[in-house]
Simulated scan of single mutants.
Amino acid sequence: MTLFEGTEPEATEPARRPPLPRRAVAGLWAAVVAIVVLVVLTFLPTAYVIQRPGPVYDTIGTATSADGEEVRLIEVSGADTHETAGTLELTTVQVVGNRERTPSWFELALAWLDSSRAVVPLEAVFPRGVTTEQREQQNATLMVDSQAEATAAALSELGYDVGASVEVTDLTGDDAPAAGILEPGDRILTADGRAVRDAAHLRDLIQSGGGDPVEIMFERDGERRTVQITPEQGSVAGETMWLIGVTLTTAFDFPIDVTIQLDNVGGPSAGMMFALGIIDVLTPGALNGGEQVAGTGTITANGEVGAIGGIRQKLYGARDAGAEWFLAPAGNCREVVGHVPDGLSVFAVETLDDALAALEGISDGDTAGLPTCETG
């Protein structure tokens, strides 16, 4: 429009925006409410923790020491050692959260949607009355114990003579069932009249009682005593069991020196893979045929392989590390069936001999007859 001197432009009303449809308004409010709820849930405390795949360590390879140096995970002196090939990897589980800080509901929701993770009750991993530091100390003791039992199992398999005595190293607390009865340094001789072979054997004898009082014979300062202790339920490495409230170690008289160097890993579940690594180092040839093999499982001095916690997370951890083969305790088979990641073959083992037979089959390329969780 052209303006001439002395004229004013006509006033026009500003254009009005059409009102939002009711559905759009409702959707907008729903989004606002969802954001508010999400923010609130992020800060609300929960009663769960998350288990996820942890690091994988090659027992016949190297690991980083506490000083930051790369060292052989298994060192042997006093016997001839041999070159190895491939891997024999132990698998671990990482726990996200503790009593001081649990995961948010948002983190739990993401974990529920991830097949490689598990949401478990806080009490199952961090029992009430046990601090995070106490739990870490218990798991560290179990790791040391598992290394000794693995060494005993491996050397026994190779024909060496090893002696064993089960000793109390500490009490788990002032309110532990054994408090005031057992002391550090006590040597456990029998449980319910049966000679105790090693720490794992004592744990099994306690479990078999289902919570009933256990008659313990022990030796202190050269004097033998017999007492009764009533176990209480607790958690060790994520597994609920009957406990008398002591940490134990099995002292062996080894004819050769075996040192396992692995920091920041606790619990007993690496025992079987330690034993296989020791045997591989002490025998000619590649026990695994040069293949990448992973596994998990506790082990006793007489070669029995036991179930562990977090098996599904360990399967995914092995797959992600590149393993094609996995040795799983037969006791974990119910948790394995239907949850094996693509590209991973899993064999069930009950003993060290079973694990060695599985490695022989993998090495020879003939695994058809090896037991799996699906075949029982």
Rank of each mutant, 00 (worst) to 15 (best):
G6I: 06
T7I: 12
E13G: 04
P14K: 11
P14F: 11
P18G: 14
P19L: 09
V32I: 15
V33H: 02
V37H: 06
L38G: 15
V39N: 01
V39H: 03
P45N: 06
A47N: 14
Y48F: 15
V49A: 12
V49I: 11
T59L: 15
G61Q: 08
G61H: 04
A63D: 02
T64E: 15
T64S: 12
A66N: 08
A66I: 11
R72M: 06
E75C: 11
E75H: 13
V76H: 02
H82K: 07
T84Q: 08
G86T: 06
G86M: 08
T87G: 07
T87R: 11
V96Q: 06
R99N: 09
R101F: 07
T102V: 09
F106C: 07
A109K: 05
A111D: 01
L113P: 05
A118I: 00
L122D: 04
F126W: 09
G129H: 12
T131A: 13
Q134W: 03
Q138W: 04
N139M: 13
A140W: 04
T151S: 15
T151L: 09
S156C: 04
E157D: 12
E157F: 08
Y160I: 08
Y160G: 09
A164D: 10
V166N: 03
E167Y: 04
E167H: 06
G180E: 08
P184Y: 06
G185F: 05
G185M: 07
G185P: 04
G185D: 08
R187H: 11
R197L: 14
R197E: 15
R197P: 06
A200W: 04
R203C: 04
D204A: 15
S208N: 11
P213M: 08
E215T: 14
M217F: 03
E219G: 06
R220L: 10
E232K: 07
G234M: 00
G238T: 10
L243T: 01
T247D: 10
T259G: 13
I260V: 15
V265T: 06
P268F: 01
S269L: 03
S269Q: 02
M272E: 08
M272K: 01
M272A: 10
M273Q: 06
A275V: 07
A275P: 01
I278G: 05
D280S: 15
P284N: 13
L287R: 08
E291D: 12
Q292M: 10
A294H: 02
G295W: 03
T296H: 04
A301V: 10
N302A: 09
G306E: 03
G306I: 03
I311D: 04
Y316W: 13
Y316T: 00
G317L: 11
D320Q: 13
A323S: 15
W325N: 04
P329H: 04
P329S: 10
A330M: 09
A330S: 13
G331N: 12
R334D: 14
H339N: 15
V346G: 00
A348C: 11
A348E: 09
V349I: 15
D354E: 09
A355Q: 05
A358T: 14
L359D: 10
G361V: 08
I362S: 00
T367C: 12
A368K: 13
L370H: 01
P371V: 05
P371R: 05
P371Q: 05
C373K: 01
C373W: 00
